[in-house]
Every structure is written in structure tokens, then in C-alpha cells.
């Protein structure tokens, strides 16, 4: 906020200038406060979602790690963490490999029906989740995939592919096709060209697409509620049933840990973005 106002600014404009920044500050507060407020609440010593007088007076007795302890020792939560990672990792692998190959095909100049194909491939992102979830519930029950890990992995992979297609296609927009021709003319065959030339260049797009696919699965609640059962419970599944049935601050502890995870993800995506821009020579 160091920008100096020009000397000819009228007092009214000066007031407006600062008022505007205060308003924006309040909006940023609205964005961030609800996320930050759960951090201290998760250290609550009593099983409520509220600040106790002890907490407000910074009395150490008002704080405890019992909800974190509960999270790390409770078998329900441990199963949920395991399932979340298993399901997210496998669905990300499927989504990333299929999505990257499809994006390569879609960005070729010759591809027919491009708009229509693109619309179909990103439809899992457009269709309301509740409709996808109900459809998958009926269909997967019929072919005995409902309530299996495989079913949930396939469902999450389908939901994750649009993100991979979009990010990889975006990377390929700036991709110089003459590089492929150059590699070919120098004697590299298709496979060598792909792994030595194409992959390193689109890798940031692939990785950020994979991160999107991972977070989509990791964060997904609606489809897992319908396609999964207790055996496939993920962290969001467990949180949802926790909020519905017995609210305990363990949920806040989990939420705090998830915020940490998202900060990590955000940082890695930002670093990837910068790398892409550097490689493409875009000025930041």
C-alpha cells in the first residue's frame, strides 16, 4: 500500500482512496477470517465449537491437544485418511494419464469436432455433482461397483479428468510444434520425441492438472456419499457424517490440518506456474 497519491488529489478523493482500501480490507477479512478462526478453536479443551472464557484470557488450561490426539488415535479417522490417499492417488493416476493423452490429441490442429469433443470431455465439471452422484449410484449398484474401492476410484477419476484436460491443453497452447518436427528431422522417432521433447515441456501442466485431480478426489463429498459406503469412507465422508451426527471439535482439528495441506498445495502450484512462465519467457 505504498503507492503515493499524486499531489493534485482532492481531499474527497483522498478520503475515498483510503475508504476503498478499508472496504477491501474488510472483504479480505471476510475471506480469510472463517478459515483462520477454526485454528484456535481446534485447540479447545471442551467439546464445543466456541471460545471459552479460559481461551479468551489465554489461560493454558483452556487449550488442549485432545482433538488432535483423537484424530490420530481414532480408528475411524485413520481408516478415512488411508482411504482418502488410496482413492485420490489411484484416481489421479487414471485421470492424469487419460487426460494428458486426450489433451495431446485435442490440441492437434487436425482434430475434427473439436468443440463438441471438448464439451463432452469437460462435462464432469459442468454437470451438477448431485446428478453425477445419483447416476453413478444407480448404475454402479447395477454392476456391483457401488460400495467398492474400484467404484469410487473410477468415479473420482471421471470427475478429475476435465481439470487435467484443461491444464494440459492450456500448456500446449504455447507449445512450439516445430520442436517436434525439428526432433523428427534430426532422426528421433515418435516415442523418443515424446519423452525427450514433449513431456519435459508440458510437465508443469501435467503436474498441476494432476494436483487438481488429486484435490478434486481428496475434497469430494457428494459422489462418495452415494457411491461409497463406510468401508470407503474418506476424510470428507467422515467429516460430513460428523457434522450431521455428533459435532466434536475433532472435525476442527481435521479442518486445521486440511488448511495446512491446502497451503502446501497452493505453494506448489504457484511455484509450478512461475516455472512455466519462466520457461516460456513470460515476464512476471
Amino acid at each position: 500500500m505504498k503507492s503515493k497519491l499524486p499531489p493534485y488529489t482532492t481531499p474527497l478523493e483522498r478520503i475515498w482512496h483510503y475508504l476503498f482500501r478499508i472496504i477491501c480490507g474488510l472483504i479480505f477479512l471476510f475471506l480469510i477470517f472463517p478459515i483462520l478462526v477454526i485454528v484456535p478453536l481446534s485447540f479447545n479443551a471442551v467439546p464445543f465449537f466456541t471460545f471459552t472464557p479460559e481461551m479468551l484470557s489465554f489461560n493454558p488450561e483452556g487449550y488442549s491437544l485432545r482433538w488432535y490426539e483423537d484424530f490420530f488415535t481414532n480408528l475411524n479417522w485413520r481408516g478415512a485418511v488411508n482411504n482418502s490417499f488410496i482413492i485420490a492417488i489411484f484416481s489421479t493416476l487414471i485421470a492424469t494419464s487419460l487426460g494428458t493423452v486426450a489433451a495431446l490429441g485435442l490440441s492437434r490442429r487436425e482434430v475434427p469436432y473439436r468443440t463438441m469433443l471438448m464439451a463432452i470431455l469437460i462435462s464432469p465439471m459442468i454437470v451438477p455433482l448431485i446428478i453425477s452422484a445419483c447416476g453413478m449410484f444407480f448404475f454402479y449398484s447395477r454392476i456391483n461397483l457401488q460400495g467398492t474401492h474400484l467404484g469410487v476410484i473410477l468415479a473420482h477419476a471421471a470427475l478429475g479428468t476435465p481439470f487435467v484436460v484443461i491444464t494440459v491443453t492450456a500448456t500446449l497452447v504455447g507449445f512450439d510444434r516445430s520442436l517436434i518436427r525439428a526432433a523428427n528431422s534430426l532422426g528421433a522417432d515418435g516415442v523418443t520425441t515424446f519423452f525427450k521433447i514433449v513431456v519435459p515441456l508440458i510437465l508443469p501442466g501435467v503436474i498441476s492438472g494432476a494436483l487438481f485431480a488429486f484435490i478434486t478426489s481428496f475434497d469430494e463429498v457428494v459422489v462418495i456419499l452415494f457411491v461409497g459406503s463406510f468401508e470407503q469412507r474418506t476424510i470428507p465422508w467422515q467429516m460430513f457424517s460428523g457434522i450431521r451426527e455428533h459435532i466434536s471439535p475433532t472435525i476442527l482439528a481435521v479442518a486445521t490440518l486440511l488448511v495446512l495441506v491446502s497451503v502446501l498445495l497452493l505453494t506448489s502450484i504457484e511455484l509450478l506456474r512461475r516455472r512455466t512462465e519462466r520457461l516460456r519467457g513470460v515476464r512476471t
Binding site: A102, G105, L106, E110, V111, L117, S123, V127, G135
Partner: peptide, 23 residues
């Protein structure tokens, strides 16, 4: 190019589009 798009297309068809149509 279509062959590259096909695997994803078939995958989405079976896991996503058919279930929704069915519902």
C-alpha cells in the same frame, strides 16, 4: 488425433455419461 482422445472418451462414456443417461 481421435485415437488419442478415444481412451478418455470411452472411459468417460462408461463411468460417467452412461450412468447419467441411465438415471
Amino acid at each position: 488425433s481421435l485415437a488419442l482422445v478415444a481412451p478418455l472418451f470411452i472411459f468417460l462414456g462408461l463411468t460417467f455419461l452412461v450412468p447419467i443417461g441411465d438415471m
